[in-house]
Structures are given as C-alpha cells and as structure tokens.
Design a protein around this nucleic acid. Sequence first.
DNA 1: TCAATTCGGACGGAATCAGTCTGATTTCCA
DNA 2: TGGAAATCAGACTGATTCCGTCCGAATTGA
Lengths: 146, 146
Amino acid sequence: MRLSNLADYAVITMCQAATHCGDGRVSAAELAAETGLPVPTVQKLVSKLTGAGLLRSVRGAHGGLQLGRPAAAITVADIVEAIEGPIALTACVDHVACDFEAGCNMRAHWPIINVALRGALAGISLAQLRNPPAARPLPLIEEIQA
Amino acid sequence: MRLSNLADYAVITMCQAATHCGDGRVSAAELAAETGLPVPTVQKLVSKLTGAGLLRSVRGAHGGLQLGRPAAAITVADIVEAIEGPIALTACVDHVACDFEAGCNMRAHWPIINVALRGALAGISLAQLRNPPAARPLPLIEEIQA
DNA sequence: TCAATTCGGACGGAATCAGTCTGATTTCCA
DNA sequence: TGGAAATCAGACTGATTCCGTCCGAATTGA
C-alpha cells in the first residue's frame, strides 16, 4: 500500500524542476544536487518522466530539461502513473484473471476505491505543491456518504 | 501502490468467514478449502485478523473461528490495516524523518491523500461485500473540488 | 489422561526494487 | 566539416522485502 521510493522521489524531482520553470533548462545533475538524490537515480526518473511527456529533454551541449506542460497542468497522479504505471490497488482491475474469483465479491468494489484514490492524487497539481495546501481539507468519503 | 497479496487474500477470507456467520464456528482449513488459498497462508492471516479483533478464535477440540464483530461493523479498511498496518502512501506521514525535506513540499499534502484513500476503504463494510455495490458510485474527489 | 485443534515463531525461496555503470545520440564551437 | 562536450537511454548487480511453508507449544473437550 506504500508508494515506491522512486515515485516519491519523482514527485520531489518534478517539484524542484518546476522551480526552474523560468530559468530555461536544467540538467539532471543540478536537480540531483538540489534535492540530495543520487545522480543516476534522477537520470532514471527523468527518463521515465520524459517518456510520459511530463518533462522535455534537449540533448547535446547546453542541453537540459524543462517542464513538458505548465506546472498547473501536471498532477501528482500524472507523476505517479509515469513511474509506477496505472494507479490501482489490485491486479484484478487490470483485466487480469484472478484465481480466487469464486469466493471474491470485491471485483465490483475495487474500481470505486481506485477512482477515489486517483481522484485524490489528481486533485493536486505541481503548481499547488509550491504553495501550502488549502486551509480546508477535502471532505471525507464517509462524510459524503452520510 | 499495489495492495499486498496477503491483504487481498485477507479480504477474501473475511468475506468467506462472513458467509458462515450463522453456522457457529469455522476452521481455518475449511476457509482455505472454500477460497482455494493455501492452508498455512490462511492460518497466518487468521492470526493477524484475530489479533486485530476482527475474528474470534476458540482453541481446542471443536474449536474454530467466528467474526469478532457484526459484518456491518467490519470494513475493508479494518482488514487492510490488520494485515499491513496503518494505511498511508508514504513513510513521512508516520512521523519518520525524510531525508529530502529540503526540496519536498509534499509533507502537508499527503495527509489529505491518505484520508481520502482510507475513507474509500472504510466506506465498504463486510456486509456490503455480500451484495452488489450501490448503483450510484461514490463522487469523484475532482467533482467535489469543483 | 489422551486426542484434536489452533496459535505463534522460524526458515527457505522468489520476486521486486533501488542503485550503479557503460554505451549511444545530439548539439555547439573552432 | 570535424572534434569535443554534455546529455540521455538501456542493461546489469546487489539488496531488501514479501510470499509461502513447516514445526513446536498451548489449549480445550471427551
């Protein structure tokens, strides 16, 4: 149920990249130095984030990285999905057959849980991360149901 | 971001145990046979579930297991927490120091995400699992924010 | 007192993940 | 146009965690 370390690092890295938004390009080595993460790890993250379109890389001398979209258009859900793949708590939602379906009535319930989780992650943009969170937290699902 | 297999199995096992609610006691071996899970695995699950109070075990001859509370008072969140510990996506919410706090503004945001996730799991009781889910799914967090 | 049943901890194998390294590609400058 | 610099991209190794299994101890009913 824990987020992988790489996904956690990716959020930190993207957050740091956003602070260089107006500075032109940033190298992966700079991001590593500023965040304290190992350089090869940041390179690995950057590779996946670029593939997902969240970062845009320019190779060659004086190359570097920049955000692929405005910070407000990048959410935590986007970053997590770029590193870990689709956001889902169980494999059975990925259309993979489950060996224990006989005694399992959860199949119809997991999508609801997954949507709630993804919604929570998608509700936080990179732009919001640079500011303190809203004073009023999101309502609880329990309160909504009541 | 995936639920561990054991947590998934625990939900299935509890669901099966609930079907024996009126039959007195059930042995772990019976639950294993009905769900198709390995017997030792079910025993391990039962041990943790009993420790959390979700199951009640009676030792000795003609012993067995029964629900520790009414099915309506046991939620998926309870089961998952019994197996995996507190529901949280990142370690930093557990009051564990994070090495990368310098460039990390996520600290204030994770509790919101965690609460939303736990709420989604806590909104589904064991009694509900035996019936098809409500026709109207829960609202998306995105819709709530709008 | 004996037999049946469960609980608890310890062990081995497997899979996944984090981290490191080396090679290929691209661009700028002389 | 050629060389050099800086970057990205993929493959590999080591370690951690997790799953599944087994065996001994404790408890209860006959």
